[in-house]
């Protein structure tokens, strides 16, 4: 049994949902799914801890891509969570027997096919299940190039992991595909929403959030072991956890370029180029940080904070201009 709509993706949620929507006959790219759901963001949430380090996100919270895309395409998804793992597994089997392709939220840690060094307790991973053979589920995990298998016990464990963002066995299916053409109007609306998020008047969100993080980094003690872990953690969130590079900035640039081909949206192609350059700036920040983590350069929080402040300024100008261009 194969799943013809498996495509390699940068990010699990946009990958899963674009592949699922394609399976239901609406051809859509990962970038389009990501952009239309207005998933690009920045959030620095020091009060939510992952292994003692603050949550730093370059995108909207889990499930918002699925919900956002459903709204834009007028498609319907059905979400189900479970208290009891046995019931959750039985429901998955039932849906598969009915011929559904089923989306799941899982922990990364308990998935045996993940590389050992990538298995962290991160609970908001997404994948598609397209069949079952014997005791193995057939899985389209878009962060991998090929489809994989996972035994029932491990999958159940991954679906019912506890902790921050616990999936509670969440599964989802597509009930109604909705519209299949993307109009300039919906694209414009989605882009303006992202501009609003990035320019939000809150100190922990968007360009202000980047600035707050910069101030936090500037206060780090260069001699403390913890400081190195803190800055390394920022880069992991930005580059390692499936972002397509530069904390989703390249992915969003791909979306802007795709929208630029719609009538009346040609000016977005210039914005796409600009965002690619800003993305290169994020990559330069990652490189500078990694060199300090590795000890090739001395840890210098002030330099890193300045790089972040500069990125915050660039993005502020970028999203202001983008907003003006669309209004």
């Amino acid at each position: 049994m194969t799943f013809p709509h498996h495509r390699h993706a940068a990010h699990c949620e946009s990958g899963v949902i674009s592949n699922l929507v394609c399976h239901h006959g609406v051809p859509i790219t990962e970038a389009m799914a990501f952009g239309l759901s207005a998933a690009l963001s920045f959030a620095y949430l020091p009060f939510i801890k992952l292994s003692g380090l603050p949550l730093i996100a370059y995108r909207q919270p889990p499930r918002s891509i699925i919900r956002g895309l459903g709204k834009v395409l007028e498609a319907e998804f059905r979400f189900e969570t479970f208290r009891n793992p046995a019931v959750g597994q039985a429901r998955l089997d039932e849906l598969l027997a009915q011929g559904h392709v089923v989306g799941l939220q899982t922990s990364v840690y308990w998935l045996p096919y993940f590389p050992e060094d990538m298995r962290f307790h991160f609970n908001a991973h997404n994948l598609l299940v397209f069949g079952k053979e014997g005791n193995d589920y057939l899985i389209s995990d878009p962060v991998g190039e090929q489809t994989v298998r996972c035994d029932a016990a491990s999958l159940s464990r991954a679906r019912f992991a506890k902790g921050v963002l616990a999936p509670r066995g969440l599964l989802y299916t597509m009930q109604k595909p909705g519209v299949s053409t993307i109009t300039p109007r919906v694209a414009r609306k989605a882009i303006l929403k992202t501009c609003r998020t990035m320019l939000a008047p809150l100190p922990i969100i968007g360009v202000r959030g980047i600035k707050t993080l910069a101030n936090r980094v500037a206060r780090l003690d260069p001699a403390a072991h913890r400081s190195s872990l803190f800055v390394g953690h920022i880069i992991r969130m930005q580059e390692e956890i499936g972002t397509g590079g530069a904390g989703f900035r390249f992915l969003y640039a791909a979306f802007l370029q795709e929208v630029a081909s719609l009538s009346g949206m040609e000016m977005l192609s210039g914005f796409s180029d600009r965002l690619m350059l800003i993305g290169d700036g994020w990559r330069a920040f990652a490189l500078a940080t990694a060199r300090m983590v590795k000890g090739r350069d001395a840890l210098n929080p002030v330099i890193l904070a300045d790089l972040l402040r500069d990125l915050s300024r660039q993005e502020e100008v970028f999203f202001r201009d983008l907003k003006t261009a669309l209004n």
């Binding site: 390699h8 993706a9 940068a10 970038a31 590389p115 190039e145 499936g242 992915l251 791909a254 370029q257």
Partner: peptide, 18 residues
């Protein structure tokens, strides 16, 4: 740390397409 996996990233080709 990728254990043999390759990851998807977005980049610009010679024609300027991402």
């Amino acid at each position: 740390t990728l254990g043999g996996y390759r990851k998807a990233v977005y980049a610009r080709d010679a024609g300027g397409h991402i």
